[in-house]
Design a protein around this nucleic acid. Structure first.
Lengths: 156, 156
DNA sequence: TTAGATAATGAGAGTGTTTATCAAGCCTTA
DNA sequence: TAAGGCTTGATAAACACTCTCATTATCTAA
């Protein structure tokens, strides 16, 4: 446990340092709001909507008085710089997660909304192959599997 | 050509008949608006936004005076009954298409917004395999490849 | 350390999309 | 054909997100 926490802290410190470097490169400023947004995204295990992220930050740092516009602005900026990635979720808007991890896809439970991540090499390579066959210059991809998760199946 | 048209008409007639049956089963009514929406979706080769669908119907059937609310309501109903499926398109909203066709995935050009459909057996089977491995009861899935299409690459 | 330049912020107005409300109208079927 | 109840169009409202702008905070160079 102690080890996990330490590793986690070290990993976050690296993320933060990289973030600062990026800001400097682009002549952007390192603000309290940006720091707390990155931190909250990092320590949250979930995929967050801008609204949910806003709530979390208001609860933990009420004195920051962070506005929702700043959340949106920062998430956009983080996404443009490939630090976070977003997942479109039908009409319910977007959810964001730190994207510094390895690429992965999502399995979404249509009952409880839980999102499970997975990585599959066969699919990764196949996607590149398909894009190539169509003369398509692939930039990104996303795949979602919708269904009922194990827990929800058992509850019936 | 004549053959194509005939086949197409026959196929649409079947779709329409099935739709009527569904409505009857659910004690819903067969209205002019619902018919024109289904028809327009069927004869359109494109993935349509609710707004675009509304425009098409206003142009072709001005006397219907169809309201945008009806378009949304009908698309929802059709989607709930697996007659159409929608494709979330980031911040730009949703696009709808008839879902009675074979399953397929999408390749989306981030420059011009063009959507190309494709079917890939390797991916289809792999998806089932992944869901099984996670004890997930798969209901549906969607995959999008984002990138620059051939035409847009050539224009640069 | 300080001051000036300028990026970033919060509040709130604005925008575009989707949904809810409700009175009037249309479909079904008896 | 007439009644009942589902549908509709118009419009208000909810929602997600973006823009504007005056004020505040950050960075840097002296």
């Amino acid at each position: 446990m102690a080890t996990d926490f330490t590793e986690r802290t070290v990993e976050y410190d690296k993320l933060l340092a990289d973030f600062k470097t990026l800001l400097k490169e682009k002549a952007l400023k390192f603000t309290n709001q940006r720091e707390k947004i990155l931190e909250t995204l990092y320590y949250s295990q979930e995929h967050l909507t801008p609204e949910a992220l806003h709530q979390l930050i208001k609860e933990k740092y009420p004195e920051l008085n962070a506005g929702i516009a700043t959340i949106y602005r920062t998430l956009s900026m983080l996404e443009d710089n490939n630090i976070v990635s977003s997942l479109s979720f039908g009409a319910q808007g977007k959810k964001y997660e730190l994207g510094a991890k390895d690429h992965h896809d999502h399995m979404i439970c249509t009952k409880c909304g839980e999102i499970t991540e997975f990585v599959d090499e066969v699919i990764e390579t196949q996607q590149h192959k398909i894009a190539d066959e169509h003369g398509f210059k692939m930039q990104d991809h996303s795949m979602q599997i919708y269904g009922i998760c194990k827990t929800c199946q058992e509850q019936q």
